[in-house]
Computed example of a mutant assay.
Amino acid sequence: MTARRVLVVNPNSSVSCTAAIRDAVAPFALPGRARLDVVSLAEGPPAIANWRDWHDVAAPLCDLVGREDADAYVVACVSDPAIDLLRSTTDRPVFGALRSGIATAVARGERFGIIAFVAASVQRQRRVLQAMGLEARSVGSLPLDLPMEVLTSAEGPRARLVAVGQELKARGAEVVVLGCAGMAAHRGFVEAAIGLPVIEPCQAAAAQALLAVLG
């Protein structure tokens, strides 16, 4: 059997964010059965920080999917840019990190909260929650408002991540979703600090993609 290929695309151009995603999904690879290739979008902005960034990556993502053959695709951004568009241009499965992360969260608990990247992320994430019919199960989406390069640093965002996670817990969250791929390296630290399951959405999407191509 030829090994299946899952292409994991970071739609921003941040090298440190792509590295964080690669490290997060690496343990999910199945040698000889499936590989997870992580790439960044060279044309992408440094981060998907606002609606313009979200819309601007749609066409380049379509071009990338058109030239990169894979058995499944993961858009590794927790705002799910271009998911519906990509699904209309390929017959292969396309997974969004946000949708996958939320689906995993509601399998772990009744109420969940999201640690958002910036304030502008909150509206985009609310739209997805509404589309999934799960807004009522969210206790909120609270932004860090930190630059991407701080978010992906070893220690820089951790105090803020824990503080926001604790606030979501106080609001009744039973599960916390990391709301940006740049937070990936901090999942275990935050989980231990706040005492709740913490979902890293790129891992959730990779797991669902593997199930789709190997099931």
Results as ranks from 00 to 15, higher is better:
157 P>N: 02
155 E>M: 04
109 G>P: 04
141 S>A: 15
99 R>A: 13
88 S>Y: 00
118 V>S: 11
111 R>W: 01
95 F>M: 00
72 A>N: 11
147 P>G: 06
83 I>F: 06
75 V>Y: 07
85 L>R: 15
186 H>V: 01
150 V>N: 08
147 P>K: 06
116 A>Y: 11
125 Q>A: 03
177 V>M: 08
171 R>V: 09
114 I>Q: 00
161 L>H: 01
90 T>H: 01
105 A>K: 01
100 S>H: 05
126 R>M: 11
121 S>A: 09
119 A>R: 10
158 R>M: 12
126 R>W: 10
160 R>M: 09
95 F>G: 03
144 L>I: 00
121 S>M: 06
121 S>R: 08
101 G>H: 09
133 G>Q: 06
170 A>K: 15
68 E>P: 07
144 L>V: 00
178 L>R: 09
170 A>H: 13
180 C>R: 09
106 V>C: 02
106 V>W: 13
173 A>Y: 14
129 L>Y: 03
102 I>T: 03
81 P>K: 08
100 S>Q: 02
72 A>M: 09
135 E>P: 01
161 L>S: 02
85 L>H: 11
118 V>I: 15
149 E>H: 12
137 R>C: 13
164 V>F: 06
128 V>F: 02
135 E>M: 04
181 A>T: 08
80 D>F: 04
149 E>W: 05
87 R>F: 02
146 L>I: 05
144 L>Q: 03
154 A>N: 05
173 A>G: 07
104 T>N: 10
105 A>N: 00
110 E>L: 07
88 S>N: 02
182 G>F: 00
166 Q>F: 11
134 L>M: 04
113 G>A: 00
97 A>W: 02
176 V>Y: 04
91 D>A: 04
127 R>P: 03
148 M>R: 05
155 E>N: 07
159 A>P: 03
124 R>I: 07
139 V>K: 11
130 Q>D: 11
168 L>K: 09
129 L>C: 07
97 A>Q: 06
161 L>D: 00
100 S>M: 12
100 S>I: 07
124 R>S: 14
102 I>V: 15
81 P>N: 07
76 A>C: 13
130 Q>I: 12
142 L>W: 12
163 A>H: 09
103 A>P: 00
142 L>E: 15
